[in-house]
């Protein structure tokens, strides 16, 4: 709006120019405000998320020990990872973990949430109990569970099993038991968060629908099947892909419980990445570690894309 006369009708005076500037800057300032507010987040995100990602892409093409000058090696790291016989073991174990987590871990929060949403009394208490494991620091939780998993007949779980004439179970001490044991703890630790998501989604189900279903003579199970689950479908699809992505990156449990043992039975892809980078001081192979990380990330990105494509129609 240049040249707009000022209130006293004399163009070109200082107040007019000031007003013009203000008017000119207004949209800029309006745009600057959100940017300004975003800046801290952008900085934090850029510095601690995007910069490391860029660095790891670079590092995957290098041979470096972080002290001497890195050496460019092209795709050698990727080739070395693909030739490592442990990669197949790690992929198998990770898929096995993901499958077990799907069978054991995926339904648990859903069932808990549906039951809890039906509870009238002391609902807060149940929510608290379900969420409590999420609040406990993961490393502390694992240390606790390691005591529970003591393989001696005097171990906590084995004592309890002993009361009903079962066990003793070699929880973490046997190739076939180790992985289910890890999944059990992981489910316990993570279920609370998902329960909260489902509970929030359940609130959005209009109560009239239940009333209508009841009038039509539906029992509890039919109400869940025909009213609750269809309403949760969108959320369930999201939690499913989140769980698959999460389990594909499982690290904490195998690292702290078993260190990948016994005999590599719980060696997961991410633990292999960790071992490449940190197991040997002198052989610390950051190139191979970042190469495998990138392959895992690319795989998960593709999986997510395909997943959303396939389920797009189903979700709505």
């Amino acid at each position: 709006m240049p040249g707009r006369p000022s209130s006293d009708g004399r163009p070109g005076t200082l107040p007019i120019r000031k007003a013009t500037m203000t008017a000119l800057l207004a949209p800029l300032r309006r745009a600057a405000a959100p940017v300004l507010f975003l800046l801290p987040m952008l900085l934090v995100f850029g510095l601690f998320s995007w910069w490391p990602i860029v660095r790891s892409v670079v590092m995957s093409l290098q041979q470096t020990n972080l002290v001497t000058a890195p050496e460019f090696v092209g795709l050698d790291n990727f080739r070395a990872v693909l030739q490592d016989p442990l990669l197949a073991t790690a992929v198998q174990n990770t898929v096995w973990f993901a499958l077990l987590a799907l069978v054991i871990g995926y339904p648990v929060p859903l069932v808990l949430a549906v039951i809890m949403s039906d509870v009238r009394r002391a609902r807060g208490l149940y929510t608290l109990l379900a969420y409590l494991p999420v609040v406990i620091p993961p490393a502390v939780a694992v240390l606790l569970w390691r005591i529970f998993y003591d393989a001696e007949p005097t171990g906590l779980f084995n004592t309890v099993l002993g009361w009903v004439g079962l066990g003793p179970v070699p929880w973490l001490e046997d190739r076939s038991w180790a992985m289910p044991s890890l999944v059990l703890e992981a489910t316990w630790a993570a279920a609370g968060g998902t329960v909260i998501i489902y509970l929030a989604a359940l609130v959005s189900v209009p109560p009239e629908l239940y009333d209508a279903a009841e009038v039509d003579g539906a029992g509890v199970l039919r109400k869940i099947w025909h009213v609750t689950l269809p309403h949760l479908r969108g959320v369930m699809l999201i939690t499913l892909i989140l769980q698959i992505i999460g389990t594909a990156q499982v690290f904490l449990e195998p690292y702290l419980f078993t260190d990948g043992g016994p005999d590599n039975a719980t060696l997961t892809v991410l633990l292999l990445v960790y071992n490449y980078a940190f197991q040997n001081t002198t052989g610390g192979d950051y190139g191979k570690a970042t190469a495998l990380s990138l392959m895992l990330a690319a795989f998960l990105a593709c999986l997510s894309l395909v997943y959303f494509r396939v389920t797009r129609r189903w979700a709505s």
Binding site: D174, P262, D263
Partner: peptide, 20 residues
């Protein structure tokens, strides 16, 4: 040579014998 890496290979051997 490669002392720690070789030890890492042997870890799995001992673990296998003691758990299987």
């Amino acid at each position: 040579s490669q002392t720690q890496a070789v030890y890492g290979v042997l870890d799995a051997v001992v673990q296998k014998v003691l758990t299987d």
